[in-house]
Amino acid sequence: MTLPRQRRARRQRAFRIVTFVVLGAFFLIPLVSMVDFSTRGTAGSGRTGEAWGALLHDPELTAAIITSLELAALTVIGMVLLLVPTMVWVRLRVQWAARMVEFLCLLPLTIPALVIVVGIAPVYAWVTYFLGGSALTLTFAYVVLVLPYAFRSLDAGLSAIDLTTLSEAARSLGAGWFTVIARVVVPNIVSALLSAAFISVALVLGEFTFASLLHYDNLQVVIAFFGKSNAKVSVSASLAALIFGFVLLLLLSLLGRGRKGRRTTAIEPLAVTTPAGKEVKG
């Protein structure tokens, strides 16, 4: 005789297995297909690593990879310089602005990137006038793009430490504001900084909208361009960028787990934050 509870547990397990297998297939097949497609031989048979070799040898592609990596680095620097002092300062001295800063930081989630691009073109005319037409000027737009995600990471990190007490202690020992931020706060939010940096890098490496519509060549623009002439190279470059991004984001989710305090991680877009109800049991 099977009891209703066992039947329910068995039904749940069956449901779980079916769901995981079917959806697992849906998510894995495109990835496996990329491997197959990018290594296919020219005559329709056999395997070749040509498309993967192009990642290192094609001058246009390598230049784009370098541009995107430089952009990622500059965006991280810009994001940290803009966000960390502001967020620390708000917590310590300008508490009334806390909600406003949060609202502003999360705003780019609701204003579509495409809309910002449409409006930012005239602004970029000025940027080009002052700084020249290098693709690296995209950094300015990218800092805005990564703002919500970086904010979430840093906010979680700062919430986990008692910032006021730490800074008061440091200042009573004779530290100035710069020292407080650089020598006391930053070392205590390293993992939050790392997650903010990872998510920023992942977003910048995958960015296409701004670059393509403002006519700069970054990695994604060049991948899309190659699609018309040599789709295999596009696919191999996509897969490479993808794997790199996966690794970064997986590291990020691991970092998120190790952190105490708020459970929101940077990769949750506008998550419904409900503290998990604790189950009590006798």
Binding site: F27, F37, A241, L249
Partner: peptide
């Protein structure tokens, strides 16, 4: 968490390859 962020050109080519 990873897949929700995976959009754009790379995703398009993943499906073109499929």
């Amino acid at each position: 968490g990873v897949l929700a962020q995976f959009g754009g050109v790379m995703l398009a080519f993943a499906f073109i390859a499929t």
